[in-house]
Simulated assay, not measured.
Amino acid sequence: MPVTDADRRVLARAVELAREAIDAGDEPFGSVLTDASGRTLFEDRNRTSGGDETLHPEFEIARWAANNLAPDERALAVVYTSGEHCPMCSAAHAWVGLGRIVYAASAGQISGWRSEWGLAPSAVAVLPITTVAPGLPVDGPVEPFASEVRELLRRAALG
Rank of each mutant, 00 (worst) to 15 (best):
P128K: 03
R8N: 13
I101S: 00
G118V: 04
A66K: 08
P121V: 11
V126Q: 05
P28D: 06
L158N: 14
P57E: 01
S49P: 04
Q109V: 02
A125I: 14
L158P: 07
T54K: 14
L69S: 02
G118S: 06
W64E: 07
A6T: 09
L98C: 04
W64R: 10
P144D: 09
E20R: 12
R39T: 15
A12G: 13
L158Y: 14
P134R: 06
I22P: 02
M88A: 11
P144I: 13
E20K: 11
L127T: 06
S82Y: 01
G38C: 09
V126I: 09
E116G: 08
A94Q: 01
P57G: 07
V79D: 00
A120G: 09
E27T: 08
A12E: 10
G140C: 08
G51E: 05
G118I: 04
T131C: 05
A156Q: 04
S111I: 03
A75M: 07
A92R: 02
I22V: 14
G159Q: 11
A157K: 03
V142R: 00
R100Y: 00
G140K: 00
A36M: 14
E58T: 00
A14G: 04
G38K: 10
W113R: 06
A66N: 08
V132Y: 04
L153F: 09
H93I: 04
S111H: 03
G108Y: 02
R100K: 13
T48C: 08
D7R: 01
A92C: 06
A12T: 15
T130W: 09
A133C: 07
A105M: 10
R63D: 15
S37R: 13
R155K: 15
G97Q: 04
